[in-house]
Design a protein around this nucleic acid. Sequence first.
DNA 1: CCATCGGTGTTAGTAGCTAACATCGGCACC
DNA 2: GGTGCCGATGTTAGCTACTAACACCGATGG
Lengths: 211, 211
Amino acid sequence: MEQTLATNTGAPAPRPESDRAARTRARLQAVALDLFVRQGFEETTVEQIAAAAGVSHMTFFRYFPTKESVAVEDPYDPLLAEAVAAQPASLSAFERVRRGTRDAMAAAPPSVDLETAARIGLMSLTPALRARAWENTNETQRVIIDALVTTGSPRADAVVATGACVGAVMTALLDWGAQADPRPSLGECVVDALDRLDPRRLLAAAEEETS
Amino acid sequence: MEQTLATNTGAPAPRPESDRAARTRARLQAVALDLFVRQGFEETTVEQIAAAAGVSHMTFFRYFPTKESVAVEDPYDPLLAEAVAAQPASLSAFERVRRGTRDAMAAAPPSVDLETAARIGLMSLTPALRARAWENTNETQRVIIDALVTTGSPRADAVVATGACVGAVMTALLDWGAQADPRPSLGECVVDALDRLDPRRLLAAAEEETS
DNA sequence: CCATCGGTGTTAGTAGCTAACATCGGCACC
DNA sequence: GGTGCCGATGTTAGCTACTAACACCGATGG
């Protein structure tokens, strides 16, 4: 009952991993991604991953709750909620999500792309991974919505704005992951997607009709 | 090789079910939903569903490819793509998706809600079902994007517009499914969500800032 | 009256995932 | 410098979702 930080989201205080544990985790993830890329996700068994990493399959599940999680683990999510909450409360919920997400992605280093690109490519062609990715997104959305609501946005607006922005980004990313190689960087893809949701731009396009 | 209709999406022509088969399928679905609601999705085994329906577990899998599919089967999806394609090509991609989806939902009968509400409620509290629902959405999005692109919208616009509208609707629905009982109808929820994405409304809200 | 065929059951197997318990190796503390 | 604790891992056994192969049964039609 003596929680020290408010950022705790319900998990029972995962103590920091030892060096050894961190190395085992990294080895498992690297080996798994390599196998997934080379022979496909469904065609790779957990047993194979564990053997290639020199551990037993139980050790794999001690580090990753599911086979999917090793491919969709994403460290960006908390940053997004933070960036959204940092937007001025005077803006609409939609603009706060849109600009917050855009800022966070524009600030992200463009070098992480290599491994991340492989992961997104895998997702775009593996239904089970797409499903998990969306489910991850769900938690991200919950956090963003909370951030919006606790800083004054009406709940209905927060829900719709978050769903729209996150949905647009995810769909754009999956489309990006399925494309052939001459393509923009991941960050550019996200920023471009969010720019296309600029209300000014949307309204300009909408007004080309009569009335 | 002798396909008769163009609406075939790649599946090998599923012949219409016999009466007996349709009854078995309906019985399985009804029994499954009942068990899911009463004792939870994870806590219900396929064996239990099959037994309660008076068949073997193999018969269950002949009708539903996964345990999740019996809870997330959704007949609305094809209608959406149709409604989007029916929007005038002079509109922006975003407005075509937004209005198409809105029209389709506004036209849907408000009576289907009972069983559908149960299904969405289940989704909102079962991670595995949410994941499947999102994955279903993926196919819907693909169809909508195709419809937009083949009728003149730039691909990037189509992808972002579809992701935003579908994401907003899904998020709103899951939020709706998690709410307590005094709540609007499912159709009203969707229409309200899409109205909140009206570019005019977004811009009005955005302009309350300086510049 | 028999052949066919759709719907179903039986059996056996694979893979993801979990629980219980044993083991091994390093680190702290005396 | 022993010694005991504890974290990381292994072993084993088991459950559940899901699949393949094949046998059966009942209706329908020639």
